[in-house]
Each structure stands twice: as C-alpha cells, then as structure tokens.
C-alpha cells in the first residue's frame, strides 16, 4: 500500500484494462498464477494428538518478528477459557474444547489461514495483492495493497486481519505458510517446533492419502472426514478430528470454491467486454439521437 501512489495505481489499472481487452476471449481468473501445482504442499493437522502446548503460537510470532513473550509463558493454559481468533498480532492460535463423554482429553485445535486452493481473497483483491503460490501458500504483497479489506469480507474462514491500531501504513496480516522460510528449504515455523508432530508437512496429495489411511487404521479415533479435502474447493491445510468438525467451530462450508459465485457473476457481466461496449453503445446511441433531434430542431427553426 505504501509504495503505491495514486498515479501508479491508475497506471496499473489502465494496463490491466488494456490487458483484459486484449485477452477478452479467455475468461479472467482469480489468481495470476492460477494453475495449481500438483506438488503443492500442505499440512495435516491431527487434532487428536495436539496437547495445546501453544509452542506453534510462539514459533509463529518469532518467525514473523511479532513481539512474543517468553516461551515459558506459553504454558499458561488459562487463555483457553475464551475462544480466540487469529488477528494482526497473532497469526495462529490454539483453542481448546472440553473433553466430552468418555473422552479422556480435551481437544485442541490450531487455527490459521487454510491456504485455499481456490482462494476467495485472491479473487476478491482488486489490485492483485494476494496470490496463490506454486507451493500452495496464499500470500499477500504489501506493495500492491490499497487497504480496501475486500479480502477480509471474502474469506470464508475470516482469517485476514487488518492493523486497525496503526495509523500509518497499516497492513493486512495473515498466516503466509512461512513463505520466506519454505522458499529457503526450511519448514514452516509451527511445523518445525511442534513437539507432538500434530502438524505433518508434505505434498497435499500425499497428506490426503495419509489422512484416509489413519482413519481406516483407527476408525474409533477419527470421524470419517478430512476437513479441507473438499471444503471450498480444497485447502492446503487439512484436519483430522475425533468428533464432528462443527463442534470444534469449523465453519460448515460447501464444496464449491468460495470465489465461484462472485466470479461467475462478475465474469458473466464482463464476458467478452460486452457490457462496457454495450453501455458505451447505448450512450453513443442516445447522443446520436439527441444530435439528430437538435439538428431537426435547428432545421425547423431555420424554416420558420
């Protein structure tokens, strides 16, 4: 947002407009690099293993230069009294749900950006500040953002957060799947620190196989559902749980990609650039009619 002057933005918009007219025979797509790589990575979160130590929260803050308290302070379990959401200062949080029935342990669920395969934020962003990367991460580019916060409205998981507290150069913050670390061959910070290996990092396809393998090996332990396999067209982060996902506050979402509806309308209206041309044609027609009428009036006036 910072380095984007009004002039630059108008230039890019004009370029995009020109580009669109150029390729108007192909429908526009959500992401610039929208072809999903078959080797894209993901994380399988096994909530039945998580002990709620919150080391991932600490590692995430440390890796993203957000102010973190001492690692020992994360042993404090009183934070679980309230349900928390990721925000601009905490990109991932762990929530705890009390043990139910015969269960021995409470269920701990890590929450962060799901890194959708068909991300609504990428689709909603009018300046292309969001992108879905080859390795599966959905990342945000501060140079382009104009702070419209459409991404926050669009996200089916309500993940992107805005630095409302900052007057100057506020940013949109969300989990970036540790893009800066993974591109150097490192693991995401949360995956690396997790003592229990609740978080298994691997190729998304392999993780889905692993998840189903686990379910068939331990049918008593897991519900027969991998959250994120099909939700909103699939997500890079996948979850296994021992009880119904909606009890753990996972939103009930269909299998259609979130941008599907909005893009269909938008792309329908703007297909082949017909509506603008039609609108201008209409204006042109009205103007032409008016011109004719004025000429007629002139003629009539001259006659008299």
């Amino acid at each position: 947002m910072a380095n984007q002057s009004r002039r630059n933005f108008l230039k890019t918009s004009a370029l995009i407009g020109a580009g669109l007219t150029g390729v108007s025979s192909k429908p526009a797509k959500a992401a610039p690099n929208n072809i999903l790589d078959e080797n894209r990575m993901g994380v399988l979160v096994d909530t039945t293993v998580c002990i709620g130590c919150r080391k991932c929260e600490w590692a995430c803050k440390t890796a993203h230069n957000l102010s973190a308290q001492s690692i020992e302070s994360y042993n404090d379990r009183s934070v679980f009294k309230n349900m928390r959401r990721p925000d601009d200062k905490t990109l991932t949080v762990v929530n705890e749900y009390a043990a139910k029935g015969d269960d021995q342990f409470p269920v701990d669920v890590k929450v962060q950006c799901m890194h959708c395969d068909k991300p609504a934020c990428v689709s909603a962003c009018i300046v292309g500040a969001f992108s879905k990367e080859k390795n599966g991460s959905v990342i945000w580019n501060g140079d382009r953002c104009i702070g419209c916060r459409y991404c926050m409205v669009a996200c089916p998981f309500q993940v992107p957060a805005f630095e409302y507290g900052k007057a100057i150069q506020p940013e949109v913050r969300k989990c970036d799947f540790c893009f800066d670390r993974t591109k150097d061959g490192k693991l995401p910070a949360c995956v690396e620190i997790c003592p229990m290996e609740v978080l298994t990092y691997g190729r998304r396809e392999e993780l889905i196989d692993l998840a189903h393998q686990k379910i068939s090996l331990y049918p008593d332990r897991y519900v027969n559902n991998v959250y994120g396999e099909h939700e909103v067209g699939g997500t890079s982060w996948l979850y296994l749980a021992g009880r119904d996902f909606h009890e753990l506050q996972f939103p009930k979402l269909g299998t259609n990609p979130a941008p599907g509806v909005s893009e269909a309308i938008q792309h329908g209206i703007f297909a082949y650039f017909v509506p603008p041309i039609a609108l201008y044609a209409l204006f042109g027609g009205v103007m032409w009619l008016n011109k004719n009428r004025k000429q007629d009036e002139h003629k009539e006036a001259n006659h008299e």
Partner: peptide, 24 residues
C-alpha cells in the same frame, strides 16, 4: 522432520506422543 516418508511420526513426534499420552 523434513523427510520423504511421512507415514509415521518423526523421532521428536514419536517421543512426545509416547510420553505425553501417560504424562498428560
């Protein structure tokens, strides 16, 4: 932890899963 075979936990995960099951 960065490995090709992800079908079983890595050593750190294996230790903790084993210990915490009783300790917790």
């Amino acid at each position: 932890r960065k490995r090709t075979d992800i079908s079983k936990p890595d050593l750190k995960g294996a230790y903790h899963q084993q210990c915490m099951n009783c300790h917790r």
